[in-house]
Simulated assay, not measured.
Amino acid sequence: MSTAKGGGNAGEGNGGAASGKGKRSRAGGTSGMPSGAPVAPPAGSVPAAPLTVGRVGIYVLLLVAGVLVAGAGTLVQAAWFPGGLALALAGVGGLFYGGGRATGTSAGVLVPGAAWLVTVFLLLSNVRPEGDFLFGAGLGSYIFLLGGIVVAVICATAQQMRPTGVRPGRVGG
């Protein structure tokens, strides 16, 4: 930090402070901070979480849970139409929100969301030659398909907007 006694290094870019005049320059980006001070990340950026064995285990569990919730939701939404559909979408929302909160990253929403999407669209909506299928052509099936995608997008977007590691305080110093 630059003081009237010339307490700045010449390499810090703090203008006239290194020459001993005792003035601080506005042009220097680090003139007001000590060299070892932690720097807060820019607004809107989320620091990447380290990939550990525990985190990979959580992602694998979320992947399996996404497949299970997709299968259960497919069966429940058609069984009891209005209540089953609400229960299936609540289960999907709980999985996506819980995955985001458990990992603290948007990948916690995207991993079970991708598993759910692949399971529902590719595996469960496939019609076999014998005529067996899990999804009917009713309105509830389409609401479940599109509603699950909308819930995943909402949870992923809300997870990205949540500030992490930034303390509340005054703007500008």
Rank of each mutant, 00 (worst) to 15 (best):
T3S: 10
K5Q: 14
G6T: 05
G11D: 13
G13M: 04
G16Q: 12
G16L: 11
A18N: 09
S19F: 14
S19H: 12
A27G: 12
S31K: 13
G32Q: 13
G32C: 11
P34N: 11
P34H: 09
A37T: 08
A40S: 10
A43P: 12
G44S: 03
G44V: 06
S45F: 05
A48M: 08
P50H: 02
P50G: 04
P50T: 08
L51G: 05
L51F: 06
V53Y: 02
V56A: 15
I58Y: 01
Y59N: 09
V60N: 09
L62T: 00
L63R: 10
V64A: 14
A65Q: 01
G66D: 04
V67N: 03
V69L: 08
V69C: 06
A70S: 10
A70V: 05
G71T: 10
G71M: 12
G71N: 14
A72L: 07
A72T: 02
L75I: 05
A78F: 03
A78W: 01
W80G: 15
F81V: 15
G84H: 03
L89T: 03
A90Y: 04
V92G: 01
G94E: 04
F96R: 07
R101L: 11
A102T: 02
T105H: 05
T105L: 10
G108A: 02
V111D: 02
P112Q: 00
A114H: 05
V118K: 06
F121V: 14
L123D: 14
S125Q: 13
N126R: 15
N126T: 13
V127F: 02
R128Y: 15
L134S: 05
G138P: 08
L139G: 09
S141Y: 00
S141W: 00
Y142N: 12
Y142R: 12
I143T: 14
I143R: 03
I143M: 07
L146D: 07
G148V: 01
I149Q: 07
C155K: 12
T157I: 10
Q159A: 09
Q160N: 10
Q160Y: 04
Q160M: 12
M161N: 14
M161V: 11
T164A: 06
T164M: 05
G165F: 00
V166D: 04
P168L: 10
R170S: 08
G172E: 01
